[in-house]
């Protein structure tokens, strides 16, 4: 009886698949983008403007992280992958086009008196050697270390900057996306975390009580990311498997063109061709 049930379900799924699959990719004028949650909101804005300039096209933007972007482009699920870091050596076969730059900023609660941290201090805080804010010039209270979950590109960038492995970090809170990180720091005066500068600067400007700390004496600002002086920064790439043609090529060119720069800046990222 149970086996019969499996067979029945299998048959139904197969039938549904037969009916559905053709309608999924008939439209030639459709692009699917998947990948980094940092790029997705920007890509969504660019896609909306692109669609209005090119009637009859449809751009579908989905998140899931840089790794998913790479993976989906490789197996053809997506036309363009969104990858918020440099390509790794084993990914060099893919074509990457930077559309903007982003910095990863260290954030603390706005009431925290600490004004800056050095790389060495940051390493000690994240590995648990420094456990109290008074050791780095703050108040006498224990530090709450906020780390990102495994697989996030922010985490990879942060680890490679500090030259640490994730197993060496002693976190008190592990978070998923930028928004959760910012909310965690807002709710805890003694927390330290790291999120995309774009997201943090936007929140700080809209009255959220967080503070971006300078790193090695360089202020965590959009201007310093643009000039390349801010040490924790990364490119936001659109990635394709083969040399882009047709609609994909049009979209990538549009995203890199001055027509999209105001959208890039609205998300607190730095347009690439201004450098």
């Amino acid at each position: 009886m149970k086996l019969a049930g499996v067979a029945v379900v299998g048959t139904i799924m197969f039938a549904v698949g037969l009916v559905w699959s053709p309608s999924g990719n008939t439209a030639a004028q459709k692009l699917v983008l998947t990948g980094a949650s940092t790029i997705a909101p920007l890509a969504g804005e660019i896609a909306r403007r692109f669609e209005s300039r090119h009637p009859g096209t449809r751009i579908d933007v989905q998140t899931g992280g840089s790794s998913r972007g790479i993976n989906d482009v490789r197996n053809g699920t997506a036309d363009i992958g969104m990858v918020s870091r440099d390509l790794k050596p084993e990914e060099k076969g893919l074509h990457a086009y930077a559309i903007a730059l982003d910095g990863v900023g260290i954030i603390v609660h706005a009431s925290n008196p600490v004004v800056m941290l050095h790389r060495r201090q940051l390493i000690d805080i994240y590995t648990g050697k420094i456990a109290n804010w008074k050791e780095v010039g703050g108040v006498n209270s224990p530090i709450t270390v906020v780390n990102k979950a495994e697989g996030r590109s922010t985490l990879e960038l942060f680890l490679s900057y500090l030259n640490l492995k994730n197993s060496q970090i002693k976190p008190h809170v592990v978070i998923g996306d930028n928004a959760q990180g910012i909310k965690t720091v807002v709710g805890n005066r003694n927390a330290i975390g790291y999120v995309s500068i774009g997201a943090a600067a936007y929140e700080a400007e809209h009255g959220t009580p967080i503070k971006l700390l300078p790193l090695d004496g360089v202020a965590a600002t959009v201007a310093n990311v643009r000039s390349g002086t801010f040490p924790l920064s990364r490119p936001l790439n659109l990635v394709t498997r083969v040399f882009p043609e047709g609609l994909a090529r049009k979209f990538i060119e549009f995203a890199r063109s001055p027509e999209a720069h105001d959208l890039v800046e609205a998300q607190y990222f730095v347009p690439i061709s201004i450098r």
């Binding site: 009886m1 019969a4 049930g5 499996v6 029945v8 379900v9």
Partner: peptide, 10 residues
């Protein structure tokens, strides 16, 4: 009932 049981097994 086969579908219901089959789902769990699936």
């Amino acid at each position: 009932s086969g579908i219901a049981a089959g789902m769990v097994l699936l």
